[in-house]
């Protein structure tokens, strides 16, 4: 989805404004001329200036007949859109469940779910999901000692 520059300009200018507003609530630095609010305020001003620049540019394009919003071809296809959300959904699924349930079952579910959604043949999907889960757990968890969540398997592993 490509929006006109005026829209993104507006977003960034607003972000700059919010930054300045939030920064002005920060406490000062006793005994010093400048405090923790200085830097965010400078950045906020920069964002507003650049945002205005984009708005001007976008407005010119609009008057020249450019559309406000351009949809890509794929966005008309439900399946393609759902593919994008499959990835985002998989990350959210992992985020929510990995801590209570543990890395191994959740990673396996993520693999299997995505493989099947992307039309990998079921037997192959199961085999690769098992191997990949085991591989990740061995490589990151055992070899590199990254504390992957243990979840319900706490007492077994």
């Amino acid at each position: 989805m490509r929006v006109n520059d005026a829209v993104s300009g507006l977003v960034f200018a607003a972000l700059g404004g919010a930054l300045i507003q939030q920064a002005s609530r920060l406490p000062g630095f006793p005994g010093q001329k400048y405090g923790p609010d200085l830097f965010p305020k400078i950045l906020g001003i920069g964002l507003i200036l650049c945002g205005v620049g984009l708005i001007v540019r976008g407005a010119k394009a609009l008057t020249a007949g450019a559309p406000l919003l351009v949809h890509q071809e794929w966005m008309k296809e439900t399946r393609a859109v759902l593919n994008v959300f499959a990835f985002i959904g998989a990350i959210v699924f992992y985020l929510v469940l990995s801590e209570p349930i543990g890395f191994i079952p959740v990673a396996f579910a993520v693999f299997l779910g995505l493989f099947l959604w992307f039309k990998v043949s079921p037997p192959r999907a199961v085999v690769v999901a098992v191997l990949a889960t085991a591989g990740f757990h061995w490589f990151f968890g055992s070899l590199f000692r990254i504390p992957l969540p243990r979840g319900v398997l706490t007492t077994i592993l």
């Binding site: 998989a90 693999f111 493989f115 039309k119 990949a132 990740f136």
Partner: peptide, 18 residues
């Protein structure tokens, strides 16, 4: 790609976690 992409995704997840 349909096999590799989910694996890459897991690399991203675990790599960030680390």
């Amino acid at each position: 790609r349909n096999v590799l992409s989910p694996i890459i995704l897991m690399f991203c997840i675990v790599g960030s976690f680390a």
